[in-house]
Amino acid sequence: MSGMTRGYVVRRFLMWVLTVWLGATLIFAIPRLAPGDPIAAMVLRMSAQGQIIENSAELIQAWRERFGLDGPWYVQYVNWLRNCMTLDFGYSLTQFPARVWEMIWRALPWTIALLTFAVIITFILGNLIGALLGWRKTPPLLRSLLPLTLTFSSIPPFIFGLLLLFIFAYTLDLFPNQGAYDSRNLQPGLTVEFLASALHHAILPAMAIVLTSMGGWALGMRGMMITTDGEDYMILAQAKGLRTPRLFLRYAVRNALLPQLTALALSLGLIVGGSVLIETYFVYPGVGYLLYYSITNGDYTLMQGIVFILILTTATAVLIIDLLYPLIDPRITFQKR
């Protein structure tokens, strides 16, 4: 753990606390700042849908506690923060005996797996393409072909997903059009069939993310590579007679990659937000799809829980990247703030 100072870790951790607190406060404030009486609207919606008639009295009471009709706002606020810390979001409004936490817990692994898979592939591919585009010794043929990979880089992933569904799921019938695994024939577990099925189902949504977002990384990396190329240490390394692959990887890419990692931490929030749409359009049983379900069904306790968990997960991922950063770039902790 060279280069990792206590001050740096403490600072990053405080940042994490601040982000999570800010998120929790936002979730608390939104229903209260919304115009009109959202609570009345919700009751109306719930009774109109007629889904929860049996337990309605109990539920409305549970839900009143959630949104706080009992006690002044600061008491409610403290209660809410305490619930967030213990991850206790109560019962789901629409699937009563189920607790919100259980429902999220079932969905969360799918989202984390899909996003980690997609983001890592995107990051590696995008930076590789960008590095080759910005490297002077790249073969001209390769360099003229590489920009083709950027074709889809500005199209929103979820709309691109529709196109992929149309081509690969309906027209060619190569991939399934929904779900995360073959739930009719398989049980989740560490079997080869299950993992193969999960991978088969994840390819299309992951492709929608990878193909649309690697262009951004490639462009950023190209710029960084060109900047790196002009540095004195590159000329020195060349003069020392180092081999080209070593120059490329250890000198150019290694330095150019650092700002990209910062950019990754900054863009995680956007990626998580976008996954809600991807999961909804691919009917992928992750947290994003669950959020869509909770909104269309008026399950407000579930919704609050999901949003908090998504903010918590994103902030934690950023914290992990931040803590890994000094290992890759030891200079960072020497900076005075």
């Binding site: 940042m15 601040l18 609207a41 929030g269 749409l277 949003v307 998504l310």
Partner: peptide
Amino acid sequence: IASDAWITIPSLVVLIVISAFVR
């Protein structure tokens, strides 16, 4: 610090919730 914390929050998720409340 404010902009760093704010940028980490998945904006679309929060916007979805706001839109769900503001019909």
